[in-house]
Write a protein that binds this DNA or RNA. Structure first.
Lengths: 187, 187
DNA sequence: TACATATTGGAGTGTACACTCAATTTCTGC
DNA sequence: GCAGAAATTGAGTGTACACTCCAATATGTA
């Protein structure tokens, strides 16, 4: 299972193809044939490196869930504006991963296993936003900070969906309105 | 083509089954066999009444897109609190349709035809919310009202996704925070 | 009641799909 | 450069699917 250099390279080609296809045709739309064509690889090679189609798909899916959150170094110190900025950048950036992530959320509505993963990463994110609120406005009680964080993320997710469906939508302009007046003034 | 009473009844049974299945297993998960089993109908009967599986599915999908909006009689007079309330009721109600609608939005990320439909209904909704803002706070400029409406709907959509994935999530508690202080006080 | 037409079930058809397999080539450590 | 293991190919396999067809039956009309 990928001990030689060529094997590892092929693995990467396959994952790159899968990533691309997931964002273009969706989780249910990817076929093995499409992946192997795009990666220029025979079916046998694919199965030499992955146990199943879903094996490759889930690898990309995990990657997408991780990628929503900006670099973990910032945890405990990033400002609200930073977090919002990073989220907007993620959604409007050129990477196919944002599209995959939002599709996943939709898929979570019928697949409990996916819902669990999405929710787990969502809660982590709410924590991080709530911490930033606390830091920015220390006088508000923790539950209030958490509620604001939940609302903020819900709005960002909703804006992200619109942005990815409508290329002319200016997500950033709307997103900055979510920041408290103090943070906006500081920009 | 359903000219006799029994045909119309069968049609309804098929649509009910499709509705149920769409919310449970998702658009890609519905199979003709599942629909015909659930509706207690042979494949031949199905095709006597619908041109294709997608024909039935799209009928339910259209219905789901319509159903997001509360009764059109209110247009031009409903308050923000009413609108938020109706949206929350739609999302947290027992109807399978909310789940179908949100799945659709996810699907819109890869299917331009669906994206167009979803966006169209989204814009109508933003209008309606913006009007309500105007009525509630006449001093704010129209663009500002529209921006607030857009944010509010984004947040409601995001909260709806969380609510449908996590049954223990209290959507209403979060949603009311979206209302301006004046509206909240009025409750 | 008799007729035309709608409705029904379900075996049968074609197709697209994920996955297997075995023969062949390529790789890498020694 | 040789041996053993990994990598590669693509034709072949089984299956699940949407959809067809038609003989049998039910429905509505006059």
């Amino acid at each position: 299972m990928a001990r030689y250099r060529v094997g590892l390279e092929t693995r990467e080609r396959i994952l790159a193809a899968t990533r691309r296809l997931l964002s273009e045709v969706g989780i249910e739309g990817v076929t093995l044939k499409a992946i192997t064509n795009q990666a220029r690889v025979g079916a046998g090679s694919f199965y030499n490196l992955f146990d199943s189609k879903d094996d490759a798909v889930f690898e990309v899916v995990r990657e997408a869930i991780e990628a929503v959150d900006p670099d973990p170094a910032g945890v405990g110190s990033d400002s609200l504006a930073d977090l919002v900025d990073a989220f907007v950048a993620f959604m409007t950036g050129s990477s196919p991963i944002a599209r995959i992530y939002l599709q996943l959320a939709g898929r979570g509505l019928t697949d409990p296993a996916i819902a669990a993963r999405v929710l787990r990463s969502h809660r982590r994110r709410v924590e991080r936003f709530a911490d930033a609120w606390q830091r920015e406005e220390p006088q508000i009680p923790p539950e209030e900070a958490e509620r604001r964080a939940e609302l903020m993320l819900a709005a960002l997710t909703g804006l992200g969906m619109t942005a990815l469906m409508d290329p002319s939508f200016d997500m950033r302009r709307h997103a900055v309105e979510l920041l408290p007046a103090s943070a906006t003034a500081a920009r």
